[in-house]
Design a protein around this nucleic acid. Structure first.
Lengths: 185, 185
DNA sequence: TTTATCATTCAAAAGTTATTGAAAGAATTA
DNA sequence: TAATTCTTTCAATAACTTTTGAATGATAAA
């Protein structure tokens, strides 16, 4: 069956899947994650079975080397794991399928890479400022301290949140906040 | 006074300030914000007075054009505002100084640019899947729905959180979660 | 041992984003 | 009006990131 230009909406599973993976890759770029990594992750996430590097390569129409590099990085992030099927020579790859667990792994890694160094910079700056006599620098000192305090409080909340097991905690949280909003004003 | 190589720790205000701005720029890159934008923002954030494009340019040792572009972008984000001093010809620039308000502006903008399109992709994919008869695609459908639900719940919580005015809500939240953690197990 | 099948590496090419600096624009003063 | 001061734009270039594909490595089967 030949597809006309008018009949352009998606009508089969493979098409929808490819479309999702494609778009998820673009979202990845937006989020500061490289396109191939995001695509591979999307593919593994919706695939019931683990996939081999070859299958990934064909599915995404990208090079062997690229797949290999992206998988290495995803494994380093801890969100993809290698699967050794017995009797099989090739490796298979799979990802965490539970959304909450997945989120926790990603959030922890991003915190480690992005937030921790940020806090470190702030702490060092404040500490250095405290070493010098503060005649001129009052305002700047105060601003840095405010910023540091804010970030530390935020991290604190996140760490408590992370310690919670299920997704349901998020729903609960939404409810509590909604309530507080109503009562507060 | 000539500085020896051994005497390398920071000992005056300007040095600490420059160091902070420099590092904050690097942090910006980590966060997907361009270096110059992050540096300008850091500079304005700790400066008591509003600064002119010229002052920014000299402080950061970067080109006139670059400052102009970065300021335009920061203004578009809504985190820097132009200040017209009467009797003065040149424009001055300043940023929100309250950390919580600043956070809200940035978070809202990032949500608009990064999260909303992501949800859109998910919603469209799920909607398309629901149009086709589901014999094969059970697992994939379920995974997409889980993901969508998770993201929607998360956004929900964020929106409630945003509606809260002061920083103190964050502290409160930390406490509630801490409590729940202790009782829960 | 040789061959086959996969995975990994890495230099080069392609693609993307940031920065410069010269030119044009806009507003003000002389 | 022309000169001055500041801002904006944008094409060229620099810097950085991603992707390719050929070479190398590693492992298992013949």
């Amino acid at each position: 069956m030949i597809k006309t230009e008018i009949d352009s909406h998606m009508n089969n599973f493979e098409e929808i899947k490819d479309n999702f993976i494609l778009h998820w890759g673009e979202m990845g770029s937006l989020w500061g994650i490289n396109r191939t990594m995001a695509q591979i992750h999307a593919l593994l996430f919706i695939s019931e079975k683990a996939l081999s590097a070859n299958e990934i390569m064909e599915e995404l129409k990208t090079s062997r080397g690229n797949v290999s590099m992206a998988l290495r990085e995803l494994i380093a992030w801890g969100i993809v794991s290698r699967l050794h099927k017995k009797g099989e020579r090739r490796e298979y790859y799979t990802t965490e399928k539970d959304v909450w667990l997945l989120f926790r792994v990603i959030a922890r890694e991003r915190k480690k890479r992005e937030v921790d160094p940020t806090i470190e910079v702030l702490r060092r700056s404040v500490a250095e400022l405290n070493k010098i006599p503060s005649t001129e620098s009052q305002y700047e000192r105060a601003q840095l301290e405010n910023l540091l305090e804010f970030v530390e409080t935020g991290i604190n909340v996140y760490e408590e949140l992370e310690a919670q097991a299920p997704t349901s905690i998020l729903k609960l949280l939404g409810q509590v906040l909604r309530l507080k909003n109503k009562v507060g004003r």
